[in-house]
């Protein structure tokens, strides 16, 4: 049974658990990111750069293949050109630019992140954020519905605690009626092992 003075219950049990959980999770990710972040990648060789670039440039005569994948003669020539440009000290951006000037933007396997093409990269970020946001909102709404149902059942079954809580709220003892149920479950055993 929930205490009439819900804040007593609320303050002492549920919040610290959740806070602990959140901070543990944050610590976990922080650890992982520092652990992975502090490794310095060895400088990659010119070869590796050339192959990397070759996988970012489309073959102009083959459908949907990069010059890296294609066995066409022109792809071979273009691979050699990439290597040559890399050898003579061009940056990756300059190499890409070289081919864009000659073949148009279509030659890049991924659009460059500038101007209009930025849309190609921004939209996915929005898609992901909106998806997760909608999921979280949906869960929240469903939880609210759950509480409303519970409330109605309780009122219908003549359980006065809800009513009394409401009075508490009206009198200003507690500000939010809906927070009361948050801490009801700490002792629940799980059934994941079945």
């Amino acid at each position: 049974m929930v205490s009439r003075f819900t804040f007593v219950n609320y303050g002492s049990r549920a919040l610290p658990n959740r806070a602990k959980l959140v901070s543990l999770g944050a610590l976990f990710f922080a650890l992982i990111f520092t652990a992975t972040g502090c490794i310095r990648e060895e400088d990659i060789t010119l070869d590796q750069r050339a192959y990397q670039l070759a996988s970012e440039i489309m073959c102009p005569v083959c459908d949907g293949q990069t010059i890296d994948q294609s066995n066409a003669q022109i792809a071979t020539d273009m691979r050699l050109k990439v290597r040559e440009l890399v050898d003579s000290g061009n940056t990756n951006a300059e190499v890409r630019e070289y081919f864009v000037l000659r073949y148009g933007q279509e030659i890049l396997a991924a659009p460059e992140r500038t101007g209009f093409n930025l849309i190609a990269y921004i939209v996915p970020i929005f898609i992901v954020i909106i998806s997760v946001g909608v999921a979280l909102l949906a869960i929240r709404n469903m939880r609210r519905a759950a509480r409303r149902n519970e409330l109605e059942t309780k009122l219908a079954s003549g359980d006065l605690s809800v009513y009394l809580d409401k009075i508490d709220q009206d009198l200003g003892f507690t500000s939010d009626l809906t927070t009361e149920k948050k801490d009801q479950s700490s002792g629940q055993s799980d059934e994941a092992s079945t």
């Binding site: 996988s55 933007q105 396997a109 991924a110 659009p111 190609a120």
Partner: peptide, 20 residues
């Protein structure tokens, strides 16, 4: 979309999808 919006062809292939 790019073709229709501004008449410039672009390719969207593996490097893009891996990234996003």
């Amino acid at each position: 979309f790019s073709d229709m919006a501004r008449d410039i062809s672009v390719s969207v292939s593996a490097p893009y999808f891996n990234r996003v």
